[in-house]
Amino acid sequence: METKDDLILATVRQLRRVAAKFARIEELPIQVADGVEVTTREAHTIEAVGNGKQMSVTDVANAFGITKSAASQMVSRLCDKGFLDKKQAPHSNKEFQLTLTPLGQKAFDAHERFHGEDREALMERLRGFSLSQIATISVLLEGVGEVMDKRLSR
């Protein structure tokens, strides 16, 4: 019979496998237009800006749990590629307000099509779980996230 510690370690191994697969998916290209692609990681930033109201670089960093420097690099790359516009925020000399360009909107729409089927399949799978099971998964992921935050802050 498995002990509680055995089950915890097996769960951690499963989370590592899922994280590795997620990292691979984040690098998959999404076709936006003829000859124009974004990585899934870039598309997620575009999605956050497209869904947000007056997103800043700091908001992007907070949304993805990354440093402001990493968020700034991603935003700069997406601005250079023509997906995002960055303008001085009216309330601050230090902040920039991010908006989608027309090409950014195309990328936003392409990302939605790209992940739409996967999202629906996942939702359908999770709808088979009880509310208690979903709550347990949420608490589990929160706990894993807290341990990861501690590691990243060292």
Rank of each mutant, 00 (worst) to 15 (best):
M1W: 07
E2A: 15
D6A: 13
A10T: 07
L15N: 07
R16G: 11
V18S: 14
V18Y: 14
A19L: 04
K21S: 09
A23K: 02
A23V: 04
A23N: 02
R24Q: 08
I25N: 11
I25L: 14
I30C: 09
Q31W: 13
A33T: 00
V36T: 05
E37A: 14
E37K: 12
V38P: 02
E42S: 02
A43D: 12
H44P: 09
I46R: 02
I46L: 05
I46Y: 05
E47A: 14
A48N: 08
G50M: 06
N51K: 08
G52P: 11
M55E: 04
M55P: 12
V57N: 15
D59Y: 03
V60S: 08
A61F: 07
N62K: 10
G65K: 01
G65E: 06
T67C: 04
K68D: 14
S72C: 05
S72I: 03
V75H: 07
S76A: 06
C79P: 01
F83L: 06
F83A: 07
F83P: 12
Q88G: 15
Q88W: 12
Q88N: 13
S92F: 14
K94T: 15
E95I: 14
F96T: 08
F96V: 05
F96L: 06
Q97E: 15
T99G: 09
T99K: 09
T101P: 08
T101M: 05
T101I: 02
P102F: 11
L103C: 04
F108V: 02
F108W: 07
A110P: 00
E112I: 03
F114G: 00
F114V: 00
G116I: 14
D118W: 04
D118A: 01
A121K: 10
M123K: 12
E124D: 03
R125M: 00
R125L: 00
L126A: 01
L126R: 09
R127A: 04
R127K: 07
R127C: 05
R127P: 02
G128T: 03
Q133S: 03
V139L: 07
L141F: 07
E146H: 09
